[in-house]
Amino acid sequence: MENPYQRKKNPTRVRQLILDKVIQLAGQQGIQGISIQSVASMAGITKGGVFHHFANKQILVKAMLEELIHHLDREVNAKIENDTVAYGCFTRAYIEVTLSPNIGANSAWSALCMTVITDKSFSEMWNQWLEERLKQHATTDQSIDLKILRYAADGAWFIEGLLPEPQHDYALIKQELILRSYPKS
């Protein structure tokens, strides 16, 4: 007979809940704001429940980054699939995704950026993803002009993240970067 007061186990859902809470914490406070206890409290589980899925904070943060990079990769792929111009397709997708409106302080993108910036041991994961994507799109996105646009996009989200109020010209900057990513006639 099944106990009606006992919760059914759903390890996949609990693991995802933990990752969602880590992303939220990292977006708000960077990885220094992440503790197993804070994650457990936010997720409504015990510290032991977190340790059941992730042996330590380092493994937890690495799993969060893998999740975020995988999500970013899916979004970039979707943008590329809908792009009818080959030249600069990765750069346009990169700009579109990284300068999206959900880039706020508590966003998944913010969590990724804060983690990579504040802990160099994790920046290698980001660099590896970017290098692989640039190799994949070497024929369409190797120009120095496109590299400058990607750097400008990185600078735009970084500055936007530092300022207390959203800038009124942020969307215009994004639009201009995308326009400049098309081949010159």
Rank of each mutant, 00 (worst) to 15 (best):
residue 107 S to F: 01
residue 102 N to Y: 09
residue 150 R to C: 06
residue 138 A to E: 10
residue 139 T to S: 15
residue 151 Y to A: 15
residue 136 Q to N: 08
residue 158 F to S: 14
residue 124 E to F: 12
residue 127 N to I: 04
residue 108 A to S: 09
residue 118 T to H: 14
residue 166 P to L: 02
residue 106 N to W: 08
residue 140 T to V: 02
residue 120 K to N: 15
residue 109 W to C: 09
residue 116 V to S: 09
residue 175 Q to W: 09
residue 169 D to E: 08
residue 131 E to H: 13
residue 176 E to G: 07
residue 116 V to P: 06
residue 177 L to H: 03
residue 137 H to Y: 12
residue 102 N to S: 08
residue 129 W to A: 08
residue 94 Y to E: 03
residue 157 W to M: 15
residue 178 I to N: 05
residue 118 T to C: 13
residue 155 G to P: 04
residue 149 L to D: 00
residue 143 S to K: 05
residue 174 K to A: 05
residue 97 V to K: 04
residue 134 L to M: 13
residue 156 A to C: 05
residue 129 W to D: 00
residue 121 S to R: 15
residue 121 S to D: 11
residue 98 T to P: 03
residue 153 A to P: 03
residue 164 P to M: 00
residue 104 G to K: 09
residue 151 Y to D: 14
residue 162 L to C: 13
residue 169 D to A: 07
residue 161 G to S: 07
residue 154 D to P: 02
residue 155 G to L: 00
residue 131 E to N: 13
residue 94 Y to N: 03
residue 166 P to Q: 10
residue 118 T to P: 10
residue 150 R to N: 01
residue 118 T to W: 11
residue 144 I to P: 12
residue 105 A to E: 07
residue 145 D to L: 11
residue 164 P to I: 00
residue 139 T to E: 15
residue 115 T to H: 06
residue 110 S to W: 03
residue 144 I to M: 14
residue 114 M to Q: 15
residue 155 G to A: 00
residue 100 S to G: 10
residue 103 I to P: 05
residue 173 I to E: 05
residue 153 A to N: 00
residue 123 S to V: 01
residue 142 Q to V: 05
residue 150 R to Y: 04
residue 122 F to C: 03
residue 120 K to L: 14
residue 109 W to Q: 12
residue 98 T to Y: 10
residue 95 I to R: 05
residue 170 Y to S: 06
residue 168 H to T: 13
residue 106 N to Y: 11
residue 115 T to R: 06
residue 136 Q to A: 11
residue 135 K to W: 08
residue 117 I to D: 13
residue 136 Q to G: 06
residue 165 E to I: 05
residue 114 M to S: 15
residue 124 E to V: 11
residue 161 G to Y: 04
residue 141 D to G: 05
residue 176 E to Q: 14
residue 127 N to F: 08
residue 115 T to I: 00
residue 150 R to L: 01
residue 160 E to P: 02
residue 178 I to Y: 01
residue 175 Q to I: 00
residue 178 I to D: 01
residue 138 A to R: 09
residue 104 G to T: 05
residue 141 D to L: 01
residue 162 L to T: 09
residue 98 T to R: 11
residue 96 E to V: 03
residue 98 T to S: 08
residue 106 N to S: 12
